[in-house]
């Protein structure tokens, strides 16, 4: 048990530390890398909670794909000018509105799903499962039966977002396009014409 607690606190500390670094570090690329570290540490915590599918999917989708795209974009843009001033450079009087909103959300969270409703007493930690417990199969069963409508709705939402993203980026047919099938069909005789000339025929 102590070993488990040690692992948990290590991962939790790394997750919180790197999450704080994400919003305070000066360099945008470093912020993204700290976000990656936060994801990996969270995946470790989830793995400890026997949610191996979620933990691996977090690493696979967020760390392996989404964050790589983040890095790609952040590296392409040059942030050197914006990184000189420090984290307080965006401070404006209008931010008080945001602070008020955030406090409201915190208050709402506290009263609706606060410790009154979700105490440790009401939700004792589930019994540890054996090594042969298949978390993936169990999750699949629940997702494709009880929650199938929510699952389909989430899928539709993602599809809509994808179509929207593509239609925003698409600017019609460009003038210069290549057809690979035509390129494959090209023969040497289409591109070069060898002309026979006798050496004495000039002039």
């Amino acid at each position: 048990m102590t070993g488990q607690a040690l692992i948990f606190y290590t991962f939790a500390a790394v997750a919180i530390f790197s999450a704080l670094m994400v919003i305070t570090v000066q360099n945008a690329v470093r912020a993204v890398l700290f976000l990656v570290l936060a994801f990996v540490a969270t995946a470790g915590v989830w793995l400890l909670m026997e949610a191996e599918f979620l933990a691996i999917i977090l690493v696979l989708v967020y760390v392996g794909a989404v964050m790589v795209l983040f890095l790609f974009v952040v590296m392409m843009l040059d942030f050197t000018g914006a990184t000189q001033k420090g984290p307080l450079r965006y401070l404006r009087p209008s931010m008080l509105l945001g602070v008020g909103l955030a406090l409201g959300v915190v208050f709402l969270l506290f009263t609706v799903i606060g410790p009154k409703q979700f105490t440790i007493m009401d939700y004792p930690s589930p019994a540890a499962r054996g090594a042969d417990y298949n978390d993936v199969a169990h999750l699949g069963m629940v997702m494709y039966t009880d929650y199938v409508l929510a699952f389909i709705a989430a899928g539709c939402l993602l599809l809509v977002a994808m179509v929207a993203a593509i239609s925003l980026a698409y600017r019609g047919h460009r003038a210069k396009r290549q057809r690979p099938s035509d390129q494959v069909k090209v023969k040497a005789s289409d591109r070069i014409r060898l002309v026979k000339m006798s050496p004495g025929s000039r002039g």
Partner: peptide, 24 residues
Amino acid sequence: VNAGLLFLLAMTSLGVYGIVIAGW
């Protein structure tokens, strides 16, 4: 591991960080 194939996909997708960070 029961989710062995997923683990493999996750690990192979992490390799790109070495390359990207090296380049940057």
